[in-house]
Simulated assay, not measured.
Amino acid sequence: MAARLAKTIRGAQAVALLSLLAACAGGARPDMGRLPVVTDPAPIVSGTMRPYQIRGRWYQPAEQPGYDETGMASWYGDQFNGRPTATGERFDMHALTAAHKTLPLPGLIEVTNLANGRRIVARVNDRGPFVDGRILDLSRGSAEALGLLSAGVGQVRVRYLGRAPRIGGGTALQQAAAPAPRAPAVPAGATYASGAYWVQAGAFADRRAAHRVADRLGDRAAVDVAPRGNDALYRVLVGPWPDANAAEHARQAVIARGYADALLISAR
């Protein structure tokens, strides 16, 4: 009798674990705060645990079961969509994935946006970001789920959960109760709020070109019209930001999106 009861309990536990794994592999959907349980982990991809050097700096990948770090995260999307990641998987910018410099590949991490409390589980399948001051690069889908898409960068907490399943693993765990407030539009004629900082992504003689760039950069970007003789100069401004440090993080994110001449503008 006891043996049959133990067998029944083990069977129920196995069914529960498989159900959690199915939820984990199903992609991004609310999961009531539960972390996924992986019963059939994918093997670590050969070669991804070797030391490597980028821009003169060495990195040593390793198993880090206690990894729990807070730092800045950025995101990447269109430019890399469909290209191979470090694991050999194709980068899907809409999936809940991420890049990390030293965690095992593929792995699972819990990422929390400290500004709004949003939380996801992401599949780590790539290396990066190789920018000072950043600990994680998010896919567009991950950044959107966390509410970081328009800002470009944000402070996050990253916890390593362990090996990833063979397929998928991305899950939205918690959404904010209300959407983040939209940044105010840039006032016409460059009448900036006192004490605010802005990032100028570019200046254009063509109004339509300026609006296309602003659309790519998200909700915090707007077009300011500056008179220039008989013509006008259309400047794409991102902001406002409350201090120079936040604005510089935003400027670096704009540069990473392909606008190398981005400038920091202060209204002080």
Rank of each mutant, 00 (worst) to 15 (best):
C24A: 13
G27C: 08
I54E: 09
M49H: 01
L35G: 00
R34K: 13
V37Y: 04
C24L: 06
R34Y: 12
A23M: 09
R34Q: 09
S46R: 10
Q53M: 15
G33F: 08
S46M: 05
V38D: 00
I44F: 05
G47W: 00
P30Q: 14
G47F: 01
G26C: 08
I54L: 12
D40I: 05
R57T: 12
I54C: 04
G47Q: 01
A25V: 12
T39V: 14
A42D: 00
P51L: 08
S46K: 03
Y52L: 03
M49L: 11
Y52M: 01
R29G: 11
L35P: 00
R34F: 14
V45G: 01
R34H: 10
G47Y: 04
L21I: 05
P41A: 00
V38P: 04
S46E: 13
P30A: 11
R34I: 05
A23V: 02
V45C: 03
A25I: 13
G33A: 06
G56S: 11
M49N: 00
P36K: 05
A42R: 01
R57E: 15
Q53N: 10
G26D: 14
M49D: 00
Y52I: 00
V45F: 06
A22T: 14
R50G: 05
C24F: 03
R57Y: 04
V37T: 06
Q53S: 15
